[in-house]
């Protein structure tokens, strides 16, 4: 074997190998080509076996050509391998394509009731001002629901609360959360900042804005210097938190036997923004709660000295707030359980 022959064999091998690489149709074929030409028992090894027959000075030259052939073929295999894997991936991806415009698979999801959600929202605002939650019974005694709140039996103010009475002597369904004021005052000492959410009952015919069951949140704050100005400031913060920072508010006299002075608190109509519309009786205002400075008699009934301490209380209808927040126009929807309604509060 001479140098020229061997070199020619290597050149032929290179050409054959490159052709075989190009012809390989898949990664397995390419592996076979690798084995056939470059493997331990492959064609290149076979050719180089004859290197011993060459003169010593020619051996490095043949070695150089052989290395060159190996590198070229390896590079070709690698390059073609990338192409082949890319094609295989592309084919798989093409086969796996779906119509992405079909709808997603629904996962059932529930919703909180707007009353519970609104109580949480109210709690959130007052909680930041240090108000803590208390609760009282719904079957209340006449003494706590009325008499302790400066509403004696046969007082004309009782007309403000049409009452449902139960067959337990001297008991009724609480007409408001205000009896909670008495319970809180007897349970804790000033400083008091208490919030009392809960269900209330009235003897009231049902229509779009009245029901015989509804929810209220009562607030009570008592300390040495708690004044009407503190009440006004707090209610403004509350109105702005729930109805927007720019919401106008109105602080005006109201009447409750258990507060003196008493307050009615209005916000600019959330429908017409104060212009005047049917929703606000064309006044531009909507009353959202009643409030006032706790009457000295009520403080005393709660065991608190009205000469040392003073404070305020407020009470709001949760459904009323929820109706304004969510644009609900019929109170009856709250207790019907119609999922088409409840499902909207996601």
């Amino acid at each position: 074997m001479d140098l020229a022959t061997m070199t020619a064999q290597l050149e032929r091998l290179r050409a054959d190998a490159l052709a075989a690489v190009a012809a390989a149709a898949d990664p397995a074929g390419l592996d076979a080509v690798q084995l056939e030409f470059l493997g331990r028992k492959g064609a290149l090894t076979e050719v180089l076996r004859g290197i011993g027959g060459l003169p010593a000075e020619d051996r490095p030259r043949v070695g150089a050509v052989a290395n060159d052939v190996r590198e070229v073929v390896e590079a070709a295999i690698a390059a073609h391998g990338v192409d082949l894997r890319g094609a295989a991936m592309a084919a798989r991806l093409a086969a796996e394509a779906v119509d992405v415009t079909t709808p997603g698979r629904r996962i059932a999801r529930g919703t909180r009731h707007p009353v519970a959600e609104t109580i949480a929202a109210i709690d959130e605002v007052f909680g930041r001002f240090g108000f803590v939650v208390f609760e009282g019974p719904e079957i209340e005694d006449d003494v706590t629901n009325f008499q302790m709140l400066n509403i004696p039996s046969d007082h004309p103010a009782r007309d403000l609360w049409d009452t449902l009475y139960v067959d337990i002597p001297d008991h009724l369904l609480r007409t408001h959360t205000s009896p909670g004021q008495i319970r809180v005052m007897r349970e804790t000492r000033p400083p008091i900042r208490a919030l009392l959410p809960g269900r209330c009952f009235r003897y009231e015919a049902v229509d779009a804005s009245h029901g015989f069951e509804f929810h209220q949140v009562e607030g009570l704050m008592v300390d040495e210097g708690t004044s009407l100005a503190d009440l006004r400031g707090l209610l403004d913060e509350f109105a702005h938190a729930l109805f927007g920072a720019g919401r106008a508010t109105r602080f005006r006299p109201g009447y409750y036997p258990f507060t003196e002075p008493s307050v009615a608190f209005d916000v600019g109509c959330v429908v017409c923004d104060g212009v005047g519309c049917p929703a606000c009786g064309r006044s531009g205002w909507m009353t959202i709660l009643g409030a006032g400075m706790v009457h000295p008699v009520v403080l005393r009934n709660g065991g608190i000295d009205p000469e040392t301490y003073q404070g305020f209380a407020f009470g709001m209808g949760v459904e009323r707030i929820a109706m304004l927040r969510h644009g609900i126009h019929d109170l009856r929807l709250f207790m019907e359980g119609d999922l088409r309604f409840l499902g909207q509060f996601r």
Binding site: F129, G130, V132, T188, P190, P191, I192, R193, A194, M221, D223, E224, G225, T226, S227, L228, A229, D230, R232, G233, L234, D236, E237, F251, R252, P253, V263
Partner: peptide, 14 residues
């Protein structure tokens, strides 16, 4: 009642 100032309560916290 509009003459009543607006004050954020700053009395003791419970």
């Amino acid at each position: 009642y509009d003459a009543v100032p607006t004050r954020t309560p700053e009395t003791l916290m419970p």
